[in-house]
Simulated assay, not measured.
Amino acid sequence: MRGRGDIVGSIAAGGAIGALARWGLAELIPHGTGEFATSTLIANVVGAFLIGVLMVVVVEVMQPTRLVRPFLGVGVLGGFTTFSTYTLDLHEMLREGHPGAAAAYLVVTLVGGLAATAAAIAVTRHLLVREGAQ
């Protein structure tokens, strides 16, 4: 931990921001116990997309910095995405007798997140090359 307080602090600050954004989304698009959790799905897929954008920009474009990835990647986007809630939602859908919705939620979240990340990487690289940023 010695010499890393700034990193831990940036992760904590980013995590608070991301968690508040996720809470706001859940308030905007609420769901009941055992219902399809649209807000969680959106948070995870949008978060996966933003992680793809962030990694291209941070790794391929920006000069190395100590706090950008911990703050934005681990903190903000780690706090915004919520795979723990995703698994709880799956469990509740199954418990409430909705195996079809649970299976759809499982597949759409996983495939959607992977596709969103891949699309973000491709689109970000394309836009940056077009703009001459790389």
Rank of each mutant, 00 (worst) to 15 (best):
M1A: 13
R2D: 00
G3R: 10
G5S: 03
D6E: 08
V8I: 13
I11L: 10
G15Q: 10
A16C: 14
A16P: 04
G18E: 02
G18Y: 05
G18D: 03
A21W: 11
E27W: 12
E27Q: 15
E27K: 15
I29G: 02
P30L: 04
G32Q: 12
T33L: 07
G34A: 00
G34R: 01
G34I: 01
E35M: 01
A37F: 02
T38M: 07
T38C: 02
L41K: 00
A43K: 01
V46T: 12
G47N: 09
F49K: 01
L50Y: 07
I51Q: 03
G52K: 02
V53M: 01
M55T: 06
V58C: 07
V59R: 10
E60Y: 04
V61G: 02
P64A: 09
P64Y: 02
R66A: 03
R66S: 04
L67D: 03
L67M: 06
L72H: 11
G75T: 06
V76H: 04
F80D: 06
T85H: 09
Y86S: 08
T87G: 14
L88S: 14
H91G: 12
H91D: 13
E92K: 15
M93E: 09
R95Y: 11
E96L: 06
G97S: 12
H98F: 04
A102C: 14
A103C: 13
A103D: 13
A104Q: 13
A104K: 11
V107Q: 11
V107H: 09
L110W: 09
L114C: 15
A119D: 07
A120M: 08
A120Y: 09
A122C: 08
V123K: 02
V123D: 07
R125H: 06
L127C: 13
L127H: 09
L127R: 15
V129A: 11
R130T: 10
A133F: 06
Q134M: 09
